[in-house]
Simulated scan of single mutants.
Amino acid sequence: MPENKSERLAALADQCVQCGLCLPVCPTYALDGNEAESPRGRIAIAAALAKGQVPVTDDLREPLDHCLGCLSCERVCPAQVRFGELLVETRALLGPAPRRPRVLLALATRPAWLRAARRLAGWIGLSRRQAWLAGRLPERSAWGAALSLAATPLPSTPSGFSAVSREAPTLAPVALFPGCVGSVDDEDAQQAATVLLEAAGHPVIRLPAFCCGALDAHGGRTAAAARAMQRVRNAVQASGASMLVTVTPGCLGQLRAALPGVRVSDPYALLADRAGELGFRPLRQRVALHLPCTQLNVARSGEALQTLLARVPELEIVPLPPRCCGAAGSHLLEFPERAAALRVPTLEAIDTLAPQALLSSNIGCRLHLAAGLAERGKAVPTLHPLVLLAQQLVSGSPP
């Protein structure tokens, strides 16, 4: 790594004052009780690597590979350590992890391939053959985890939502970034975002579907991440929009890094600003609300989402405790056993609440939780909050 990058990484690490306030909010420290699996432990490792004080070994890089990138530590840090930047730059120094499931990640980041794989899974009845196939794979392997996700399809919703006719002022156009996995498994959420934003007065320009580069950036593949970021810039420039939204908060950090001069968010803040223009039909249902780490710590839109859901008459919203479910991008494939252990408290909370549906904005979290519920024999519909809001949206003036 060039000297200036080493110096930058060392400077990021040196911001840490070792106060330990990050420890109670770190999911991996709670799981392992090991200082190396804490934010300040990882910062110490990053500093030693940047200063050339230690060689790269498997034991040294493992805590860095285990990090979920949830950024709960960054949110509570009194020294304002930019842990997300530090993590990405340290992984760039280390390079891709040896156990990185390259074939699976290549599939996940190519929407056309992923869509074809989804169709194939349906044709062969993968959900019926899962147990037989799982018995022939190593327990908690990357392929076993992928099989579990693929064999647990998300509940289907109508292919479209009713058009809303309302005299709303035309506001600034918004570019909608579909992403990679989200463009396939969150197609209904993309449609829902379009319906809701246009009802609120924002024309929507849908961009082509491709990966934003987040998986590559967090996997140490710097050049591939840079190419994806340039593709994002080109697509937004061609759209002519001054704002970009995504229904997958896991993409937000990478999109903001690619577009420093553009407002990038999930749709909730824009919709909450125009909540008076939106009316919803009553829905007598109890739903558990899961707020993904990136929605809490990057988008910081949990309050806006709850404000919107509260406008649906008779809907009972029960927030789940704020903690990482273990999906964390490619983590659920690279470390399926750890991801399953991190998921347990959230699944137990869902069991206790006994909701009629589970809402979560992040496709990785929703697939991971749906697979865990299926393993427990629980039939809880899981859907994107935007889908529920679009289903309940009414035409005409709001009540």
Rank of each mutant, 00 (worst) to 15 (best):
A134Y: 05
Q306G: 08
V25M: 03
C26Y: 06
G69Y: 06
P27C: 09
R311D: 09
C324F: 11
L126S: 02
P169W: 08
L393Q: 09
P158N: 15
G41H: 02
A299C: 12
V298G: 11
C16E: 07
G135P: 01
P336F: 08
A116L: 12
G240V: 01
P96D: 03
R99D: 15
W113C: 02
G240C: 07
A46D: 07
A108G: 12
S72C: 09
D65W: 15
L289F: 15
A258K: 07
A328G: 05
V394Y: 03
A192F: 00
L207E: 04
P267A: 11
L393S: 06
S330L: 11
L114P: 01
S239T: 04
C70M: 06
A310V: 05
D216V: 00
T90A: 00
Q392P: 02
R136S: 04
R40P: 02
C73Q: 10
Q80E: 14
I363P: 03
R128D: 06
S127W: 09
P24F: 08
L283V: 12
S38A: 11
S127K: 11
R115W: 07
A370Y: 02
P173L: 15
P178Q: 07
A340D: 05
R102Y: 14
G302E: 14
E314C: 06
L120H: 06
T222M: 08
C324P: 00
V81H: 06
L270Q: 13
H331M: 07
E198M: 10
A199V: 06
Y268T: 10
Q285M: 12
L367V: 01
D188Y: 00
R166P: 03
V103C: 05
A151F: 01
S183C: 03
G329M: 03
A200T: 09
P260F: 05
A217M: 01
Y29C: 01
R300N: 05
A46W: 11
P385I: 00
V287S: 03
Q130P: 04
